[in-house]
Design a protein around this nucleic acid. Sequence first.
DNA 1: TTGAAAGCGCTAACAT
DNA 2: ATGTTAGCGCTTTCAA
Lengths: 354, 354
Amino acid sequence: MSTEKVIDNILAPATVETPQNKRAKPNLEVIAKATGVSKMTVSRVLRGGAGFSDETGRRVMEAAESLGYVPNQLAAAFAADQASTIVGVCVPELTSPLFGIVLDGLHRTLSRLGYQMIIGCNNHSDDDEESWLRKVLSWRPAGLVLCGQTHTPGAVELLRNSQTPVVEILDDITAPLGLTVGFSHAACGADMGRFVLGRGKRRAGYIGALGGADAQAVARFDGFRAALSQDPGATVEVEMLQDVPCFYAGFYGIEILLTRHPDLDVVYFHNDEMAIGGLAWCSARGLRVPEDLGIAGWGAMEAASILPRQLTTTQVPAAAVGKQAAEALVAALRGERPPLRVQLPARLIPGETV
Amino acid sequence: MSTEKVIDNILAPATVETPQNKRAKPNLEVIAKATGVSKMTVSRVLRGGAGFSDETGRRVMEAAESLGYVPNQLAAAFAADQASTIVGVCVPELTSPLFGIVLDGLHRTLSRLGYQMIIGCNNHSDDDEESWLRKVLSWRPAGLVLCGQTHTPGAVELLRNSQTPVVEILDDITAPLGLTVGFSHAACGADMGRFVLGRGKRRAGYIGALGGADAQAVARFDGFRAALSQDPGATVEVEMLQDVPCFYAGFYGIEILLTRHPDLDVVYFHNDEMAIGGLAWCSARGLRVPEDLGIAGWGAMEAASILPRQLTTTQVPAAAVGKQAAEALVAALRGERPPLRVQLPARLIPGETV
DNA sequence: TTGAAAGCGCTAACAT
DNA sequence: ATGTTAGCGCTTTCAA
């Protein structure tokens, strides 16, 4: 293909009506004429239903193939006035490995079952979720997957009016809009709180990110603090960073926190990335982990398990959440009755850093 | 909202026609009747065009708002027979941080400009890409973003027939289908090859993953090997793993390779995850890095820069690729003439491990 | 500034 | 097993 042709391909308005163009986008009628049957029969054949002879089926398929027919889902979904095969998925972050794993789990299952995924990212903002919702609902999706449990009133109303099935994932949803598949962040935090107490640590710190806008992370912290408050002598100091929860945030966050509170004996981090940053800082400063300072993360990044010193963290069932959310949604779409609420276990990994 | 109501919401077929249902999905006609104008005027107002009085505009907007109108893009895109505002994006992996960053870059720009993203994942398989393409083209997307430069003949034909603008990203595309935004993997490998030679390493190893199905990774290896072959005394031993390119693959891959070739003095890995796995193995075995063995990665994960010993690697412009690909695509859709080919720099990070 | 008519490509419902 | 009719909600085109 020459470069000129390529340029034309790119920039040619799709509305130009040339004869080749016509030939390039055959529709049911073209196939029908070519085969000598009606549009309806062609439709039946192409959708793989019944109601036609083998001979007809064969000839229609051949014609469709040779004409390079590509079905128009816009027209199909519109005409059927039924939900399309689009599933909308909105995650709070696209760059976090955790959500990548969830998306992968969703995608594997949904694509296998014939659905396409429209994705959105709301950067932990409920308002952004609502505007994304407004856009995606105009495509009349078959279903939706949302992260977390907080939504704007406007979003809830949109959802209710649209009657679109929803799965809320990755949290312990208390007031579900529909189906839920997740786990309890409060329990993750509480488990870690009890664990550090069990290790004899009572002067705890917590380093969060996103300025506390991540509701799930806040729930972990609340669980952690609640667990520590069971011990009258335990304290928790907090540092909430206005930053993304990355390695570097952990690295400088721990410096800030320890400058303010030099006597801490354990620090619980927003996630593993930040905890690993904290570990790196300790290593740079010659602090012994866990003797001088304990370090705990959350999320069980693969890296965390293979570092020289295995990180104390919580392993979350991200892939399973994606898979089961997709399965539950599709079951609902098919009129089956999936479990309304699936809670998966998050497992504390003792590791060697607390 | 009671639980029973929720269940009904989920499982009620969307086709049930109750009066409330009607009220719940108002269309242009309903708004027109409520406002005392024609559908056409409503359409003009809602699309924010011109051709109506301020008074009419105000009343239509109010009615749409109060009725909870959600436009039907299926009908709009179909009727206009113009490309929709959907952009299809296919990546080889969803769980890799690299592609998460690219998706984020694409998403930020595309959503800001009014487009929605349908994503797909082909697991490095051109055949999977083709079947995804078949699905997504049936939604008549405005444009497509594909990774890499190899496609099946069927995919190329689909693309050509559909006339859909395409951006190929993350590679140095030699026979572009349309626009390209990327960088040269061969150059990444060659730069690293020259760098290790410069450090006096001449007995090199390479550890790849996916059984060599990742064309970009293969290009890096080829570039690396070609650079080393400039030195008559240099050798390269290879281990291609049938596994995903993760920390653990690096950890056991280096053991396999060094068992076969104990005298290597540097190992270049498929990516940073694997290189960090290799570093962990060296640390576990007491090998000094880089004195006993050099370790080099690719991709510049954030983790790599903050490890106790900064990894020798290549920093790739993932976010910039996503952003510029989206911008170029949208420019083409608007009839502008974006640069056909954008090559971004990938920068070698010397680090401390070679 | 506004409206009426036609039709996008497909499918549901009802024929035969 | 196959065809006919009607219409999904919107936009384009043309008219007023």
